[in-house]
Amino acid sequence: MSRMQSMRSPVAVAVLAVLAAMSTIQFGASLAKGLFPVLGAQGTTALRLGFATLILLAFWRPWRRKLTRRDVLAVGVYGAALGGMNLTFYLALERIPLGIAVAIEFTGPLAVALLSTRRPIDFVWALLAVAGILLILPLSEASQPLDPVGVVWALAAGACWALYILFGQRAGAAVHGGTATSLGMATAALLVMPFGVAHAGEGLLNVSLWPAALGVAVLSSALPYSLEMIALKELPTRTFGILMSLEPAIAAVSGLVILGEQLALVQWVAIGCVILASAGSAATARKSVPAPDAVS
Rank of each mutant, 00 (worst) to 15 (best):
A231W: 06
T237P: 00
L227M: 09
L214M: 13
L246G: 14
P224S: 08
L235G: 05
L214A: 14
P236S: 11
S221Y: 13
V216T: 05
P248V: 09
G260R: 13
L246Y: 03
L246I: 08
V216Q: 05
V216C: 04
W210C: 01
M244C: 12
L227V: 12
E228L: 09
T237Y: 07
W210L: 01
G260I: 14
M229D: 13
L223M: 14
L259Y: 03
V253K: 02
A222K: 07
L219I: 05
S226I: 06
A249P: 03
S254M: 15
P224G: 09
R238L: 09
V253R: 03
Q262R: 13
A212M: 09
I230W: 12
L243E: 05
T239M: 11
L246W: 01
W210G: 01
V257C: 08
E261Y: 01
G255H: 03
L227W: 04
P224F: 12
W210S: 01
P236V: 08
S221N: 13
S221M: 12
L232S: 08
Q262P: 00
I230G: 00
A231Y: 06
M229A: 12
P224M: 12
A249R: 09
P224E: 12
E247I: 03
P224L: 13
Y225Q: 09
S245Q: 08
A252M: 08
G215T: 11
L232C: 00
A251K: 05
G241D: 06
Y225S: 01
P236H: 04
I258M: 14
R238V: 04
S220L: 10
G215L: 13
P248L: 06
V253P: 03
L263H: 08
I258V: 15
L259V: 09
G260P: 11
S254D: 06
L214S: 07
V257K: 07
S226P: 00
G260D: 11
F240P: 05
L263E: 10
T237N: 04
P224C: 11
E261H: 07
G241N: 05
V257W: 14
G255M: 04
S220R: 11
I258F: 07
E261A: 05
P211H: 12
G255D: 07
S226K: 13
S254W: 14
A251G: 12
A251D: 07
L246D: 01
K233E: 14
P224N: 10
I230C: 02
I250A: 09
S254R: 07
Q262V: 15
L235R: 09
A213P: 13
